[in-house]
Design a binder for these strands. Structure first.
Lengths: 123, 123
DNA sequence: TATTCTGGTTACCGCCAGGTAACTACAAAT
DNA sequence: ATTTGTAGTTACCTGGCGGTAACCAGAATA
């Protein structure tokens, strides 16, 4: 999911894209925001992602220093995720993407499907 | 390459990620920048992308209004690409990603491979 | 006559991203 | 005794992403 060739580039921008340049990571970071969120919450807030891929993405985000994982030694287990300083510093960028899209997006609904089938987050 | 489920979302941020949330599009937009660039130039500047995928990405970027395509009726053909107003408005976002990465990136070179194998753009 | 130059498109094929289902541990509730 | 709940992990399998190679037009050059 991370692109290793990108991450090995000499260009810092290319490396950045290699790290966060896929569809799930911006969504996950945006959903977490300034909160502390548990795995199961993410799983239900983002219905289109499977648990397997969610776990992979979270692991990579943690390895890349965007995320902090807090595991409590309880049963049933409890794990909380929150953004690190680096992750929090990425939020304004996501915010500007949101504004950019709102400003320039053109009519995105060519075929008027029933609105029930549309999902709120990440789908 | 575009994620249609994302693009059909009610959430403008999710739609934005559905449109530009893959690894090639930010790279392409960044490479074009404020210039006017021909297809063959892009192909050689970004060595890791194949012509097929490059053509696909350019077509989608044009459909999404980020890019303007100017085809001259010559032989051999000449086609020039430049960013639209929407595309140009996206450049500052890419710039802030670059700065963010430079500020927070941690030692990205675990195994010291020979530097010759590293590529400058997108790889 | 044959090659080159450009911007693609098409057919074909292999691999892996990602989905599904099953399974784990153990405590507490029923 | 059995079900429930959490946070994953693992095995297995398939669709489709993306790579490669061939091919196109038609003027210019050798």
């Amino acid at each position: 999911m991370r692109d290793e060739r990108f991450c090995a580039s000499n260009c810092p921008f290319t490396r950045a894209i290699g790290t966060i340049g896929n569809k799930w990571k911006p969504i996950i970071i945006n959903v977490i925001g300034t909160r502390t969120v548990r795995f199961g919450q993410l799983d239900s807030i983002i219905p289109l992602i499977s648990r397997k891929v969610l776990a992979e993405q979270l692991k990579e985000l943690e390895e890349d220093g965007l995320l902090e994982r807090l595991a409590y030694k309880e049963l049933p287990p409890r794990v909380e995720y929150k953004l690190s300083e680096k992750g929090l510093a990425f939020l304004p960028i996501l915010e500007s993407i949101k504004e950019w899209n709102c400003k320039y997006e053109v009519a995105p609904l060519p075929e008027e499907t029933d609105k029930k089938s549309r999902v709120t987050y990440a789908g």
